[in-house]
Structure formats: C-alpha cells, structure tokens
Amino acid sequence: MTQELIMDAAANGLSGRTAEIMRRYNEVFQRHDPSALAELVAEDCVIENTVPAPDGARHLGREACIGLWSAIATQPGTRFEVEETFVAGERATIRWRYFMADGKSLRGVNLMRVAGGRIVEAMGYVKG
C-alpha cells in the first residue's frame, strides 16, 4: 500500500467518525432532545451563532454551548429539516431549514469542526 492510500484510508476513517457525530448532533434537533449533547460537545467548544444580526454572538465553553443548543432544540412549535450534511475529515457542513412556531422558516448553514471525538467549533450563518 502506498503512502497516499494510507492517508486516504485515515481520512475516510476520520470522516466516518465525524459523520456519526454529526448524525447524533442533528438528532438532538430532530427529536427535541438535547440529552446527547453532553457526550458530543468538547470542553473548549466555541459557537458563533446567527443572532443578534448582523454579527451574531460568540459562546465559549461546553456549558455555554450546551445551554444554547438545548434552548434551540427544545423551543416549542419549531423544527429543523436537515437538507444536507457534508463531511470531510474533521469538518462538516450542515445545510438546514428552521421552521419557527409561527410557520415562517429560514435557511442556514453550520460549519462544524470535530476534534477528539467531540464538537469543538460551530459557526452558524443564515440566508438573508
């Protein structure tokens, strides 16, 4: 086996692990159940989210990130549709559509990064 093939196999393995973490992360919002977040979020996680506009807010640390995502996941009358999840190594892009309680929706994307089997970075953007 050449060095190139070994590197490809390692990248595929990493992508597979990241894809599984993203699958479990997306389920939090699909099921409105944030209990899995404790296993998925790293101590040094950072979220840059979409509100307040135009620059959003920065949330630092595991507690802050779990708190924010838990509040979003359990918001009554809302739902997320995952349109696509693309994974490359430790990075993932999630395209989503968020339906608010009033029936209106918006589209957005999260740029995610995983390290050591946990989410360490999430940068959210919405379509204006």
Rank of each mutant, 00 (worst) to 15 (best):
T85H: 05
V114D: 06
M7H: 14
I6Q: 15
P54G: 06
R23P: 04
K104V: 09
D44W: 10
T18S: 08
A73C: 14
L68P: 04
V28H: 01
P54D: 02
M100H: 08
D44Y: 06
G124I: 07
L14A: 13
G108L: 00
V87M: 00
S15Q: 07
E121P: 01
M100L: 10
A64G: 13
E83Q: 06
E83R: 06
D44T: 15
C45G: 07
S105G: 02
W69H: 08
L14V: 14
V109E: 06
I72E: 01
L68M: 05
A115G: 03
P34G: 06
V41M: 01
R23G: 04
L106E: 02
V120T: 15
V46P: 02
L60C: 10
I21T: 09
M123D: 11
A53K: 11
E39S: 13
A57V: 11
L5G: 08
P76Y: 04
F86D: 11
M112R: 11
D55S: 08
D102R: 07
A57R: 06
H32D: 04
V120K: 01
A122Y: 09
M100N: 13
T93Q: 12
I72A: 09
A122R: 10
S105A: 06
M100T: 08
M7L: 14
F80T: 08
R107M: 11
I72R: 01
G124S: 03
L5Y: 09
G13Q: 13
E20A: 10
D44K: 12
D33G: 06
T93S: 15
T50I: 06
I66L: 11
F99Y: 07
G124H: 02
A42R: 02
F80R: 01
V120N: 02
R107L: 10
I47A: 01
F86K: 11
E20G: 08
V114L: 07
L60V: 10
L40W: 00
S105F: 09
G16R: 14
V120D: 02
R24C: 10
A19F: 01
G103K: 02
G56R: 00
D102A: 01
V82Q: 04
A101P: 09
V120R: 01
V51S: 13
G124C: 05
G13E: 11
A64S: 09
D102N: 08
G56S: 02
R62G: 07
L37G: 06
A64K: 04
